[in-house]
Each structure stands twice: as C-alpha cells, then as structure tokens.
Design a protein around this nucleic acid. Structure first.
Length: 582
DNA sequence: GAGTTTGAAACT
DNA sequence: CAGTTTCAAACTC
C-alpha cells in the first residue's frame, strides 16, 4: 500500500482543476494516505455475501485475497476504473492483465491516469459504500438478519440482475439497495424473500444452490412461478412498490421452492412476512432466519459492547474514587500528625465504600446496576456519574464513540475530578492526577484485556466447533462414499482438513469404516484441547498482566497511558468490526 | 475454457 | 444529462 502515489500527489498544484484539488483535499482530510484512501474505495470484493457465506469453491477462494482479485484487463492498460487494482489504488501484482501500466515502471502514465480519473470524478476513489467497514459508520445501522445497512454512494443501476447477483455492486458489498439506486425490479431490499432465499444456510455454502436461487428469483421461478404477473420492469419507486407486488404474489412464490426448507422455518422474523401478506398463510410462515452471521455474533452482542464500555468507565470511576480516598486518608494522616491531636472524623463520602477490589470480577458476569454506588448508575444502566473522574483517554474514547448510547449521557467538556470535596479540584496536584489516571487505566486495561481474551477464546472455540464439525462431516461422507476403504485421496483430504480445525489435529483414524463414535471422540478431543487451550490463554493473560506491573508509578503511568491509547483505538476498531460482524 | 451477460465506466 | 460504447467481471454452458 505504500506504493502508488506519494503524498505530493495529492498536494495542491498550480493549474489543477478544482475537482482534482477538492478530491485531493478530501483525501488529505481523511486520516490515511492517498494510497490508503484509494485502497479503501473498493471494499466489496473480499467481502461479498457469497464469500461470507463460506462458499468453498475455487472461485470463493479467489474472492478472499489479500489484495483485490487479480485483474485480467486487456484494453484499459489497467489505468481506468474498469481495473479493480487501479480502482483499489494498488499496483497490479501477479495479475493476468495485458499491457499493464499500473505498475512502478509506468508511474508517470499511472499518475496521469489517476488525475484524469479524479478530474472526471473527484469521488472516483472514495469509498463506494458509505457505512461499510471502509466507510463512515454514521449511516450504518444493523439489521436483524446480520446485515448492515449501508449505502452505495452512487447506487446501482441494475436492470436484469434483480440486484441479486454480483453484477450489482450493492449486492456484492452485502448491502441493501438504497434510495441512491436506480435499479429495476430490485430484489435486494429489506424483506425480500428472494434475497433471504439466497442466504439460506441450510443450503449454505452451496454455491450452486445460491446461484440457482438467484436465478430462480430473478427469472421468477421462485417469485412468480410463472403464474403471477411478470416482473415489473420499470424503475423501482421505493420499496413500497416491490412490497406491494410481493404481497400480491407471494402465495405463489414458494410453491415450488424447496418445500422441505419451507417447513423447517417456523419463526417469522421479517416485518414483511409477519405482516400477514399471504392469504393462505403458507408464505407467511416462510421467513428466512438463516442469513449469514458472524461466528462471533452470539458472543459479541451490541449490549455486550455497551456493557463492556460501561463497565470500563465504571472501573475508571472506582479507581478514581479509590485514589481520592487514599489521598484523603493520607492528607488526614498528615494533618493529624501536624496538629498532634486526635484524628478528626474523616468526612466520609459514601462512594468511599465501593471498594476497588470488588470491581475486578468479570465484566460479563457482573450486573452493572447493583455493584456500584447510586451515583454511578444512570437510568439507562450506563453506570455513569456526571461527577465521576475520567482520564483523558477515557474521555476521548467516550466522546468519540458518540454512537454508543451511554456516551450520550457523558459530558465531554473536560476532566472532572473526584467529588471528594469542593476544594479538591482546585488543589489536586498534577501528580495525584497522573496517579489517578494510572490507576484508572491500569484497571481499565486489565478488564479490557480480560474481556478481549475472553472474546478471542470464545471465538476460537466456536470457530473450531464449526470447523471440526464440517471437517468431520466431510471426512465421514467421504468414508461413506468409499464404503469404508481409505484411499490415498481420503488421506489427502484429511490432510487438507487438518489445517481447518484450528491446529487441533484430529486423532489418526484406524483404517476402515469410520465409526460415529470415532467422530464423536474426535469432537470431544477437540473440545478438550480447546478447554486446555483456554486455560493456557487465561494463564498467559495472568502472566502478562503480572509481568506488566511496572515498578515506578511514572513508568506505570506512561506505560498504561500508551497502552490505553492503543487500546482506545483497538476498542474503536473492535466495536466497529464487531458491529459490522453482527 | 469459451462464450454470453451484465452493469459500471467512459465517451459522445 | 441522456444515450451509446467500451470494458472487465460475473456468469453460463
């Protein structure tokens, strides 16, 4: 990514057209280099819905490259947006293109092409999908079916694909068509049964089925069964038009469509199907809840993220209070010594009893509403007090993550000090602050580290469960086909399977028919290994945390501050990624 | 793998 | 801005 244009490429130059300058200015305004900027403009390839379904075809593998799929350009010299590499802002590398100029050796031509492209369209290299991981989160929302609502900047203009094939950029980006689109007979809309049919994971990972479903949906084999009115081939006028059509002919739509699968589905999930649009009720029960979901979807839930953030803030507050208590006690002691008299009754603050040690239990296990002083609990359970202290890092995190509901209750106007006494905020020395921050950050980092490790471990477990299940099934099927004979091909297959079970090797099978018990044992073995692995992870975390205990307060503060800032960024990325994955 | 279809990009 | 052409990816056979 450090190829392509240098920074100077986007610096204002005399004689450049306004669109170019604006585009370059835009690139600068964003927080990445022009190259990265350009690279972010092509988000769709490796994340296409079909790929995310886990298709196992060669095509699918090709669709998950470390760089966009190798192009095959012949006439464009890879210097036009036709070329995926060029559009992605990267050099061609290992492509099958002919007469390629998208390389270091043709930097001049390439630069001219970039400028020409920007002149035509200053947004040419901007992210096409607003709301994707590569775009702004602002317009992104989650949908109940593991889909992210985002918008294609320009929208698609599909006419024949029903926006259910990868010709459609919206579909390819796994987003619904939006008002920006000018597509005809769009089926890539919320509630579309055709779209849901595509994501039916009972057939999942079955490329042929997916494609068949798409074709059927597009041609009407699913949608109209040949009896209903032909697809209206006119401009979609919002989603209502389509919905009205759907309501009219949905009763026909699934008559010939995978009856068994229809029967399997029971719980209506979409507003469309729950709307009772079908007279006989058959289609009403047909709702697909089997859309793509991240393996972490059940582990990292939005409320978990919210809770995590809330708890981190809570610990921050606790740490601040603890430090304030200690400091006050110290001051009292000093005062007592100075006066040489009996210690005056410490004006205890109710929060003094919260107890820092108490707050080191797992954030998931803890009920945030019942373990902290009333001041820390808000009506929405966000556990925040407007008077609680927060470190700059915490504030930065919270103020920046304004989409988190709890953050809305936070004042972002600066540092607040512990409410020990009215005079404290005036006289609190800087060293106390940094000490407080260090304590806050230490606790927050500790908890956050635990949380992340926990998520990772759970994710690994789940991944392995899925992988081992699939591998076991594959191998057993193969056994079945071979009627008990294990040939070289099977051995090869097993060898190929091995890497997919997360490094937990399946025990070697004895030659002959694979017994179900063996498969079960394999499964248990895997789980056992995983549990062991989990233990190792926990111990590793402990060791790391233990070893991270630096000696001096300054070191601790610096270390923790740096780590915290890193973690802050990680939190943001994690939240963003997790939200997208969910 | 060749041929066809498709829709974005480029062009007029 | 609309219509047409070019282009390369997606798709089909």
């Amino acid at each position: 990514m450090d190829i392509e244009m240098g920074e100077s490429d986007f610096s204002p130059k005399m004689g450049q057209s306004r669109p170019i300058l604006e585009a370059k200015k835009l690139a600068r305004q964003l927080d990445f280099t022009p190259v990265e900027f350009a690279a972010k403009s092509k988000p769709v390839k490796k994340d296409s819905p079909l790929v995310r379904q886990g298709q196992n075809t060669a095509k699918a593998k090709d669709s998950i490259p470390t760089k966009p799929k190798h192009c095959n350009c012949k006439s464009s010299r890879c210097l036009k947006l036709y070329c995926d590499c060029f559009a992605s802002g990267i050099y061609c590398d290992g492509c099958n293109c002919v007469n390629c100029h998208n390389n270091l050796g043709n930097e001049v031509a390439r630069r001219e092409a970039v400028e020409a492209t920007l002149e035509r369209n200053p947004n040419a290299f901007r992210p096409k999908i607003v709301g994707s991981p590569h775009g702004s989160r602002d317009s992104r929302e989650e949908l109940g079916e593991g889909l992210i609502i985002a918008k294609h900047n320009k929208g698609c203009h599909c006419k024949k694909s029903g926006c259910l094939k990868k010709y459609c950029e919206c579909f390819q980006a796994n987003i619904l068509c939006s008002d920006n689109c000018k597509c005809l007979d769009c089926k890539n809309i919320e509630g579309s049964e055709e779209r849901k049919a595509l994501f039916h994971v009972d057939h999942g990972n079955n490329m042929a089925y997916l494609q068949h479903a798409a074709n059927a949906a597009i041609t009407g084999a699913i949608g109209n069964s040949g009896y209903g009115p032909p697809p209206v081939n006119k401009k979609r006028k919002g989603h209502e038009l389509f919905f009205s059509l759907m309501r009219k002919d949905t009763s026909h739509r699934y008559e010939h469509f995978q009856q068994k699968d229809i029967e399997k589905m029971s719980s209506p999930s979409s507003s469309l199907s729950s709307g009772g649009h079908n007279a006989n009720g058959a289609a009403a029960s047909y709702t697909s809840k089997l859309t793509y979901r991240s393996l972490l979807a059940d582990i990292i839930r939005p409320q978990d993220l919210k809770e995590l953030c809330s708890v981190l803030v809570m610990y921050s507050a606790e740490a601040a209070k603890k430090m304030a208590d200690e400091r006050k006690a110290l001051e009292n002691q000093t005062e007592m010594c100075n006066k040489g008299s009996l210690a005056p009754s410490v004006q205890e603050h109710p929060e003094n009893h919260t107890g820092g040690e108490k707050g080191v239990s797992g954030w998931i296990d803890r009920n945030p509403g019942d373990t902290i002083s009333p001041e820390l609990s808000t009506s929405d359970g966000s556990l925040l007090s407007r008077e609680q202290p927060m470190s700059p890092g915490t504030l930065a995190l919270l103020c920046d993550e304004q989409d988190l509901s709890f953050a809305a209750t936070l004042p972002c106007n600066g540092l607040m000090m512990p409410p020990v006494s009215s005079s404290d905020s005036k006289v609190l020395p800087g060293q106390h602050r940094s000490k407080t921050y260090a304590e806050q950050e230490k606790i927050i980092l500790t908890k956050f580290c635990y949380s992340l490790k926990r998520i990772i471990t759970l994710g690994e477990i789940k991944e392995t469960q899925f992988s081992s299940l699939a591998v076991t099934e594959l191998c057993d099927r193969f056994d079945l086909v071979n009627n008990g004979s294990i040939g070289n091909a099977q051995a090869d297959m097993r060898n190929q399977c091995a890497p997919f079970i997360n490094g937990v090797a399946k025990p070697p099978r004895t030659p002959g028919r694979a017994s179900p018990a063996a498969a079960t044992n394999n499964s248990y073995s895997t789980k056992s290994d995983l549990l062991q692995k989990k233990g190792v992870v926990s111990q590793a975390v402990k060791r790391r945390l233990h070893s991270s205990g630096v000696s001096s307060e300054e070191e601790k503060s610096t270390t923790l501050t740096n780590a915290f800032m890193k973690s802050t960024m990680s939190v943001k990325r994690s939240i963003s990624s997790a939200s997208f994955a969910l």
